[in-house]
């Protein structure tokens, strides 16, 4: 019985991988986006935004160094939204039905889908970190290993958010709204581009919003892990959001709750 679950997981990951290989432009654009930030934005702002000594850094760091964890999280954020988009697409094209008529429990199918997306996003994150290394952003070697569990957890959380959104988005056209109302606010109201104490100087309220932003938890967990440290608060926050988003997504896809149905009506 457990074997059946594993075969299912393997099948879903293989399919996601094959689709990913077939969409090479998706991989390139997922990589180009953070590199533009790193090569151009960070270079331009290096002089404007000095970052003082603050954990996990034990010395003054260049702005490039500061934003790399945020850009890694951004890769995962886009990946989560991308899989949300592909689920909506799957649903319109009908291939979501193939998944949902599997005899395995629906929550498990959604978790498999999520894990497949995370696998892809972790690979993307490492490719980006490799490029950043050549650009001079060189965290300790151990950090590259320590960041793996952080990447998995943050990838799961952002993927679960995507899954939840996909259960609400009725049509592909609505996806532009997701960009405006989810990706941009999450990214800018976080510690990805500037430390929170800087934000607090201009607006304490905004700093509080940033502090509870799920994306901030992801950024901070990755940032600390990359320097071999563990941020307990971020880790707990991240896990909490993961459970919340995943539970809501599973409810959203539960046939008894009829969310699927309102979309499909009338068949």
């Amino acid at each position: 019985m457990i074997a059946a679950y594993l075969h299912c997981l393997r099948g879903i990951i293989v399919r996601e991988g094959l689709r990913f290989v077939h969409q090479r432009e998706r991989f390139v654009s997922a990589l180009v986006r953070p590199l533009v930030w790193l090569f151009i934005f960070a270079a331009g702002f290096r002089a404007v935004l000095g970052v003082s000594v603050m954990p996990p850094y034990d010395t003054y760091v260049l702005y490039e160094v500061y934003i790399v964890p945020g850009l890694v999280a951004m890769i995962q954020l886009f990946n989560g939204m991308q899989s949300s988009l592909s689920i909506v697409y799957d649903r319109e094209m009908g291939s979501m039905k193939t998944l949902l008529i599997s005899p395995l429990p629906r929550w498990y199918l959604l978790v498999c889908k999520l894990l497949a997306g995370v696998t892809v996003s972790v690979l993307q994150a490492y490719v980006f970190l490799a490029v950043a290394w050549f650009w001079g952003v060189q965290p300790p070697l151990l950090g590259y290993l320590a960041v793996l569990p952080a990447l998995i957890l943050s990838g799961l959380m952002l993927g679960a958010l995507g899954l939840l959104l996909s259960s609400f988005i009725k049509q592909l056209e609505n996806f532009a709204g997701v960009m405006n109302f989810v990706i941009f606010p999450m990214f800018f109201a976080s510690s990805a581009l500037y430390p929170l104490w800087r934000v607090r100087e201009s607006s304490p309220l905004l700093a509080d919003i940033c502090a509870v932003n799920p994306f901030t938890q992801a950024v901070e967990l990755i940032r600390f892990a990359l320097y071999g440290q563990f941020d307990l608060v971020a880790c707990l926050g991240l896990a909490g959001y993961l459970v919340l988003f995943l539970a809501c997504a599973i409810i959203g896809y539960d046939p008894a709750r009829g969310l699927m149905e309102r979309r499909g009506a009338p068949g």
């Binding site: 059946a4 679950y5 299912c8 393997r10 099948g11 689709r19 009908g94 599997s102 005899p103 199918l109």
Partner: peptide, 22 residues
């Protein structure tokens, strides 16, 4: 509605289905 993955091969589609059934 057709539910096969257009960019995957016949065998890849069928293997995916088999995996979904464990």
């Amino acid at each position: 509605q057709r539910t096969l993955d257009l960019d995957l091969s016949v065998v890849q589609n069928l293997s995916y289905h088999a995996a979904l059934h464990g």
